[in-house]
Simulated assay, not measured.
Amino acid sequence: MNPILDIQHVTHSFGQHTALQDISFSVKQGEVVGLIGRSGAGKSTLLRCLCALERPQQGHILLDGVDLTTQPERQLVRIRRRIGLVFQHFNLLTSRTVAGNIALPLQIAGCPRKEQAARIAELLDLVGLKGFEKKYPSQLSGGQKQRVGIARALAANPTLLLCDEATSALDPESTNSILNLLADINRKLGLTIVLITHEMDVVRRFAQRILVLDHGRLVEDGTLLDFLRDGQNNRTLQTLLADIRPSLPTFLTGTLADTPQQGPHKTIIRLVLSGDSASEPLFSELSAQFGVQAALLQGGVTTVGEHLSGDMILSLEGDRTEQALSHLKMAAQNMEILGYVPSHS
């Protein structure tokens, strides 16, 4: 199956500054992709290229097989209707009601009024705002405004939904609500979604696949589990993962030794698990098989996408700790020894 979105060697500069350098990736129909990077990484420029508001100086951007970089402006106007945009600050028209905001792309497309009314009612039900059609943006919460923004982006039945920092202006509760809504839309409609953000926690909870931009280059393409497994050797990933990964407890930071201590000691490890291994009775297994005492210091098991994933820092103590470590290395996606502390710590 051909990808719905295919980016081929895209490069774009502003004067002497190269904003994008040889970017290539593709997105399949129905896929949920998180595009993440720090400020200045090139996310905004790439977004403008993806929705044909900026024409890259090199490379090709194909949407459903049509190269956006070669189309005349008249044709791009039609193509943009197939791309839904959700903005960070909602961009609602304050003079229009909820229904009026959602109707805007339908009116631009010349949709008959009767069809507009039916589509608006359908979308309000989809985003959980049934009965809000006569309210104005000033009467809505941030989360409700973003729901209107999502409904408006879906009005013209796009094949691709681009979300530009769609949760950055929201409180944590509203962020959860909007991410759940987007996931529901993806499941119900099979809509392809690209979420542009600087927040790793957002893509952790939402994206099936993550692309990492850094200084205009695409430096990583994989799942969060890939990043957790390989991130200790990648400085860019370490920075992005820092906010969501369990960190060493402060009472241990000054006492860790690089080599095992003489006498009784504890081995401090970081463990990454997924799938079946994340749901195994880990602690009782280590105790029963190796007589090793395991203590959870930070982290735990959570859901990443539709799968269980564990990311945790453990303390292991016992005469057969080495055998237990070998067992964990085989069972885990990644195991890293962080250091050693005396048993009385």
Rank of each mutant, 00 (worst) to 15 (best):
G339P: 04
G149T: 15
S326Y: 07
E54H: 15
T11Q: 03
Q8T: 04
L271R: 11
G59K: 09
Y136I: 07
Q58I: 12
S26L: 05
Q323K: 13
G263A: 07
D6E: 14
G128M: 07
E165R: 09
D311P: 00
L68M: 15
S26R: 06
L104T: 11
Q232Y: 10
T192V: 10
R80T: 08
M200W: 00
E280Q: 14
G100I: 11
E73V: 14
I210A: 05
T167Y: 08
L50N: 14
L248S: 02
L316N: 07
M200Y: 00
S44K: 12
A19S: 14
L76P: 00
L182I: 03
N180M: 10
Q58Y: 15
R152T: 15
L286K: 02
Q293Y: 14
P56V: 15
N2Y: 05
Q323T: 05
L218Y: 09
A118E: 08
L338V: 15
S13V: 05
L240F: 03
G300Y: 11
V98T: 08
H60V: 06
L308A: 05
S287M: 10
Q75T: 15
Q107T: 03
G310T: 05
I178K: 13
Q71K: 07
L123W: 01
T70A: 11
L296C: 05
A151D: 10
V127R: 02
R235N: 04
Q29L: 03
A103N: 06
T192F: 01
D22I: 12
Q88A: 05
V98N: 01
R147H: 11
I36Y: 00
A99I: 11
L225P: 02
A103H: 05
K114W: 12
Q88P: 03
A103V: 09
I185K: 00
P264E: 09
F251R: 06
H307W: 05
I36V: 15
R217I: 12
F283Y: 09
Q58R: 15
V194T: 09
I79T: 06
L252F: 02
L296V: 11
T175G: 06
L240W: 03
R245P: 04
N91S: 13
R55P: 10
E115F: 08
P260Y: 02
T175M: 02
T259N: 08
R78C: 06
I83V: 10
M200L: 13
E306R: 04
I269Y: 08
R205A: 13
A117I: 15
H327M: 08
H265I: 04
L211Q: 06
I108L: 15
T236D: 01
D311E: 05
S315P: 00
V66C: 14
R152A: 14
I79Q: 08
D258Q: 10
A257P: 01
G142L: 06
T69A: 13
L46M: 15
S274I: 08
V86H: 08
I244S: 04
I150M: 03
G128Q: 01
C111M: 11
E220M: 03
D221M: 01
A118F: 00
T236G: 00
A103E: 10
L161Y: 01
L154N: 15
H89Q: 10
I120L: 08
L126K: 10
S284D: 11
T45A: 14
